[in-house]
Computed example of a mutant assay.
Amino acid sequence: MSRETFQYICRRLKPALEKMDTNYRVSVPLQKRVAVALWKLATNAEYRTVSHLFGVGISTACDCVKESCSSVEEILLPETIQMPNTEKLKEMALYFEHRWGLPQCVGAIDGSHIPLVAPQEYHTEYFNRKGWYSIVLQAVVDGRGLFWNVYTGQPGSLHDARVLRLSALWDLAERGQLFSQQLRSIGGQDIGHYILGDAAYPLASWLMKPFPDNGHLTQQQEVFNHKTSKARVVVENTFGRLKGRWRCLQKRNDCSLERVKSMVLTCCVLHNLCESHDEEYREEWGVPIPFSQPDLPLQPPIAETEGTGVRATLMHHLNCVADV
């Protein structure tokens, strides 16, 4: 992270962190507090190591991380990761169409598992299908790999589709308030904005998924699956860059569940800041992301009649474009 971005973060967090100062202790300088938190998030070093490196007590290092993450949630999260407005939706849709040929697409959704030490309560719920404990980070990203919706904290044993249904994103979509009604005529049908998901997600007019590969896909269905899969990689790449920069998300975290959730959200905010400020990213930081293999669709199958017409229209459109 450049000095300019670091100073920007310190300036923005200053009002919240200053509230936490008291007259009964010598306060650690603001920049050191933020630096301790960033170092912990970036390296996942033990608090003992962090305290030695920065010359503060272990409990002080813990407080620096807790207070800095809380301040990021209070100040930076609402303005850095937010639902796109009408103009932003248009911009995102144009980017997806220009890069991948997908009209009206404004994002891709996926889940990533964040490892943690087994919680004391309900620990079996956090044991995921790969054999370790985790919470799920559900995220929607735009075509440039910036988060515009994140939801985390659900136990790792939950299916991606179940996590979606527990999120505010699903609630907004069910009430018809996820996207503004900016319709575009495609193949004679009015199509609104939508996001892309893998086979684990339900099909809806606002959420496109691939045709199930039962060995009998038509050529047009294969073209649709191939083109949407290429675009959906953007969310997997984003998770890779997120965990490459902020390595606390790679290894088991022994903090409380609430603290882990706060750290995850903070890392998502910092990802957006670093990406939008064109901070350096080295490819060797990247790591293979567990759970890149999608969950199997829920059984029995969920009725998905709502989005079938939209998917069929987009399939024909993508095949027409491919034939040109």
Rank of each mutant, 00 (worst) to 15 (best):
E97S: 12
T22L: 12
L41Q: 03
V36M: 01
E74I: 02
K88I: 03
K32P: 08
I81P: 10
V65W: 07
T60K: 12
N23V: 14
A61W: 00
F54P: 00
T80R: 13
E97W: 11
Y47Q: 09
G55I: 05
M83E: 01
D21S: 14
V34Q: 07
F54E: 00
M20K: 15
D63A: 13
E67M: 07
E46C: 09
Y95R: 11
N44F: 01
N23F: 15
P103M: 11
Y47C: 04
S51D: 13
V36A: 02
S59H: 12
I58G: 01
E87I: 09
P29R: 15
V28H: 10
S27P: 10
E46G: 09
K90F: 06
W39I: 02
S27F: 14
H98F: 08
T43M: 09
P84L: 03
L38H: 03
Y24R: 14
P78G: 07
V72M: 10
E18D: 15
L53N: 11
L77E: 09
E73P: 00
A35Y: 03
K90S: 14
P103W: 06
M92R: 04
L94S: 03
Q82F: 03
E97L: 05
C69S: 09
C62H: 04
N44H: 09
I75W: 00
G57R: 07
P84T: 03
N85V: 02
V26I: 11
Q31Y: 03
E18V: 12
R99I: 12
L102S: 12
A61E: 02
V65L: 15
H52A: 13
N85F: 02
P78D: 10
Q31A: 08
A35I: 04
L77N: 04
C69R: 06
L102M: 10
G57L: 05
